[in-house]
Nucleic acid binder design. Structure first.
Lengths: 195, 195
DNA sequence: CGTCTATTTGAATGTACTCAAAAGCGGTGG
DNA sequence: CCACCGCTTTTGAGTACATTCAAATAGACG
């Protein structure tokens, strides 16, 4: 399996030694996920950090009315996990599944812990990764509490241009927190404004 | 200055040695902040992690219409910083100020970096702290995209019971993303339901 | 080709906001 | 101790934003 993508992903934050890279990549397992196949289901304990090499996953909940609410899309070069379930080893209330045929690399919790113990640089790598994700979530919360649905859609459009024409609109609606019907109407309005 | 609170805050995640604790606490600076005084202003580079020993801070933005949107309340035992501005050393778009007379402990970026270099355990401490904050933000996003204002208020009520009667309602409204007028109406409805 | 899902459209409804004004409340100075 | 000031909270009417439900249309996949 080719580890170029995950290595350059990590090297973006910290320059690692060959020894560190070899140790880490030797712990990775490779999996192919079919469309709609689950990587994590409600009730499971999240036992891996998952890196997407190809394809696209999503992280979401299902509420009491059966409506899905998407927390994160994870296309190529993204990490995904239920961090709370992973670290505290409690059952997750989230799902991860594939929106497309997807190839992933995973590291298990024991392997990640032993990596932290052996090479503290990885504590730093994962600290920085979470910090960046944290900042992204803060921006999203500000959007949600301060903007209309139209503004949120336009922000999504600018932030993830490669995903807009790749994902079904229902998924995008679920991510920005509106109904698919209303997103359809928003898009119609936007199209009319621009003509 | 008394460091009991911050030490027990950190020991919650990792048991530190006396040497680690002494090194860390010797780098902390103590400040008293008056009500409405700024700890961070838009345009500054966030140069410290701030721990609240007493009182209450808030982290927020001001939008183009002059409306404040609150990202975080930081009462006793909470940490607050603009993590993005801190790590990438870019000007912040956030404000931190005091809702009450407040006492804080701060560690500067150079001191935090040197702490990380000398004692890698602190990489882990701060990784775990950010992970926990991250999980909290995920829950808040799910609330925002899946719930009505009334549900969000009730969740806030359950999550921060000690803050509900301590903060002005305008601040809580700003946190859950509604107008103060509408929060007032919600509370009236809730009071009537329960009688 | 047929089936399943996604998208669009419309009417009716509910949720939340705006603006304006009144009422309540705490602190400060005379 | 009272009167006043500034700020928060409440109230109401009118409006805008977003949802629900139902049905029609369009696309995608096997």
């Amino acid at each position: 399996m080719n580890h170029d993508r995950i290595i350059s992903n990590i090297n973006r934050w910290i320059k690692l030694t060959d020894e560190e890279i070899d140790f880490f990549t030797s712990r990775l397992s490779h999996r192919k996920i079919r469309r709609k196949q689950y990587v994590l289901q409600e009730g499971d304990i999240c036992g891996h950090y998952t890196f997407v090499n190809k394809g696209c996953l999503r992280l979401y909940t299902v509420d009491g009315n059966g409506i899905e609410h998407i927390l994160q899309f994870a296309p190529e070069d993204y990490w995904v996990a239920d961090i709370g379930s992973f670290h505290q080893e409690v059952p997750t209330s989230l799902y991860i599944d594939a929106l497309e045929p997807t190839e992933i690399l995973q590291i298990s919790k024991p392997d990640l812990i032993s990596t932290f113990e052996k090479f503290p640089a990885f504590d730093r790598v994962f600290r920085i990764m979470v910090e960046n994700a944290f900042v992204g979530l803060q921006k999203r919360i500000l959007q949600n509490i301060s903007s209309t649905a139209e503004e949120r859609y336009l922000t999504f459009f600018k932030s993830y241009p490669q995903l807009v024409n790749r994902l079904p609109q229902t998924q995008i609606a679920s991510y920005i927190g509106i109904t698919p019907e209303f997103l359809s109407k928003l898009r119609k309005n936007l199209a009319m404004k621009k003509l």
